[in-house]
């Protein structure tokens, strides 16, 4: 049996099942067309499994409820036409501008959910990705299918990333709907004090949603790595969320400012820089680089772990 030069490269591995397991697994090999279509099929099945889970839907419903709550609260507080009296006070970013323009509810909702709700949901999905399958005893069956572990892992990560995007969009769209219902729309003012058209504002809102989704990809890779370490889905989720909270706290301690630029949530709020005019790209780019770094480090660590792991369940 010719062992056609396995691994070394992702692409080589992807093509591998056809070359390698082909002759061994006789009957299952009937419709053995190599990768792209098969990977797509695997991805599709993963996506539908993930997004059909009640747990996932409940998470998305909670996320969709946040902008509704924020919108109603702001509306009630300013219902008598009065400016909210707490000048410069707390609350998430952009909160004071919501009354001028409903579009700002999108930014406020994202700023409110980004520190905790969104990453929590991502942590649950990412932590569950591999460990949950192992826990339910289905991981073995997934591996029986001639997909290859690397490909399975890539598909799992792609699914988690898709969830990041969907979760962010759910928050943004819910906020847009609530904002349109409760507050006026129209031309809006950037936080730099210049005016932009509503279409421009919508474009920026979309960019902001993308920036927020990208902000979560580092955490998604971290969660996936944790997920390959254990066979308990709950343990993986708890660890991921625990890590998230720890890192968030670390990011707040002034004594640790030397390491803070390297913590994955450090530049999360940089999405607000898209509302400056001209856009201030420095921190946005830093955030992008940092998330790519986390994805590369923990993605490859997850790969190293998962491809060498003894799967017993």
């Amino acid at each position: 049996m010719s062992r056609a030069d396995p691994e070394t490269e992702g692409t080589a591995r992807t093509a591998r099942p056809a070359a390698d397991t082909g002759p061994v697994t006789e009957p299952a090999g009937a419709g053995r067309a190599p990768s792209p279509l098969r990977t797509l099929g695997l991805l599709r099945s993963e996506l539908s499994t993930t997004f059909r889970r009640w747990r996932t839907l409940a998470l998305l419903a909670v996320l969709a409820a946040v902008p509704v709550l924020v919108g109603i609260a702001v509306r009630i507080q300013t219902g008598d036409g009065q400016q909210s009296g707490r000048g410069g006070g707390g609350g998430p970013a952009f909160l004071t501008q919501v009354t001028h323009n409903g579009l700002f509810l999108v930014f406020t909702a994202l700023a409110a959910t980004l520190p905790f709700f969104l990453p929590l949901a991502v942590g649950v999905v990412a932590g569950d990705a591999v460990a949950g399958e192992a826990n339910a005893g289905t991981l073995r069956y997934l591996l029986v299918a001639p997909a290859g572990r690397t490909r399975l892992l890539v598909v799992k990560y792609a699914t988690t990333t898709a969830f990041c995007l969907v979760a962010t969009l759910v928050v943004a769209l819910s906020a847009l709907a609530v904002g349109a219902l409760l507050f006026p729309l129209g031309d809006l003012m950037t936080i730099s004090g210049t005016r932009i058209t509503f279409a421009d504002g919508l474009g920026r809102a979309l960019l902001i949603a993308l920036a927020v989704a990208v902000s979560l990809t580092g955490l998604a890779a971290l969660g996936l790595f944790v997920s390959t370490l254990t066979n308990s889905g709950v343990a993986a989720m708890a660890t991921t969320v625990g890590l998230l909270i720890t890192v968030q706290i670390t990011d707040q301690l002034p004594q640790l400012h030397a390491i803070q630029p390297y913590l994955f949530p450090h530049y999360w709020l940089s999405f607000a820089d898209l509302m400056r005019d001209p856009v201030y790209w420095d921190d946005l780019v830093k955030n992008l680089q940092l998330q790519a770094l986390y994805a590369a480090v923990f993605g490859s660590a997850a790969w190293a772990r998962f491809t060498t792991k003894d799967v017993t369940a």
Binding site: V24, T25, V144, G148, A301, W303, A304, T308, V311
Partner: peptide
């Protein structure tokens, strides 16, 4: 068996040092 998992594991076990060598990547 047509268990490709086994095949892959065997593959990894055979190449002992490569197991940890993968952690070189991260």
């Amino acid at each position: 068996t047509d268990d490709s998992t086994r095949a892959e594991d065997a593959d990894d076990l055979r190449a002992g040092p490569r197991r940890s060598a993968r952690y070189v990547v991260p």
